[in-house]
Simulated assay, not measured.
Amino acid sequence: MTVSAAPDETPGRQPEPGLRADAERNRDRILAAARRLYATEGLGVSMASVAREAGVGKATLSRRFASREDLITAVFADRMDAYAVAVAEALADPDSWHGFTGYLHAVCAMQAADRGFADVLTMTFPAAKALESRRAEAYHGFVELIGHAQDSGRLRPDFTPEDLVVLLMANAGVVAATADAAPDTWRRLVGHMIRAYATPGTEVPPLPDGPTPTALYRAMIRLGRPGNG
């Protein structure tokens, strides 16, 4: 039995302009839908949910993005670029300690702004080569930044790159738990951690205010509801 190709995928000829435009519109709708869902719900969202949110069929989604990793790479390409740029800007800071603490704030703020990106920074996607390449670039820059800050005598000598991963994991959890009720709670966490990373006598930024008891209670109530982690 001969299987015909879809009109926009016929071998040997270019799709008609109208079909190309439709395909591009579908791709844009899928990316916009995935961004919305990932930002509010994290990466646990299914591909079927993305298709429904975009108003397209599963087959259309699969033609545009063959795998979950392909979709995640496309959605977060600009954020991974910003992640790599953040460490480059920190390295360019003539005050290595300021660059180091500024980088921590910048990356944790990126997590707070987008739950999906919070997940991306604490997971690996071996099949997503472009995404992992940007992550590796940022990682190597951060290793260099650590060395400069330690050479200045203001970052603890026992701080390691893995400590950043631990911070990002902790921050992702705080963001997920408090985003609705106390969205600035992550700032308090980062403030405490910077104090822990600093050598004795190092000047550290003022500690941000913590969540109010009422806001924290609302966050705890939300976590206790079925379906919330």
Results as ranks from 00 to 15, higher is better:
N171T: 14
G227Y: 05
A88L: 09
A170I: 02
E162N: 13
L43K: 02
G102H: 01
A138G: 14
R64H: 14
D209E: 15
V120M: 02
A51Q: 04
Q150V: 08
R64A: 15
L104R: 03
A219T: 09
A66M: 09
D119K: 00
A48D: 15
I221N: 09
D158T: 14
P17F: 03
K58G: 13
Y38V: 01
Y139F: 10
I221M: 12
P205Q: 08
L91K: 06
G191L: 10
L189S: 02
R195N: 12
R218M: 06
T73D: 15
M220R: 11
H192F: 10
N228G: 07
E89A: 12
M193P: 10
A176W: 11
R13L: 03
A84T: 00
V120H: 01
V85N: 05
T185C: 07
R63S: 07
R225Q: 15
A182T: 04
R25G: 10
A23Y: 08
I194N: 04
D78V: 03
R13K: 09
P11I: 12
L155S: 08
G153R: 11
P94E: 13
F159M: 06
A88C: 11
P226K: 06
P11H: 13
A48W: 11
Y197T: 03
R68V: 10
D22L: 15
G147I: 08
P206E: 09
H148K: 15
L207A: 08
D151P: 01
L168K: 02
L31C: 03
T60R: 05
A39I: 06
P126W: 00
E162A: 15
S62T: 14
Q111P: 05
Y197S: 07
G57I: 04
E89T: 13
F100K: 01
A118I: 01
A39P: 07
M169R: 15
R156C: 15
E89W: 04
A215C: 07
Y103A: 00
T40P: 02
A32E: 13
A182R: 06
A6L: 14
Y197E: 07
H140Y: 09
S67W: 03
A82F: 09
A84W: 00
V204Y: 04
A113G: 03
T40F: 05
A177I: 06
A34C: 04
S62G: 06
E41C: 08
S133E: 13
R29I: 00
W186E: 06
R68S: 11
S133T: 15
A32D: 12
A23H: 12
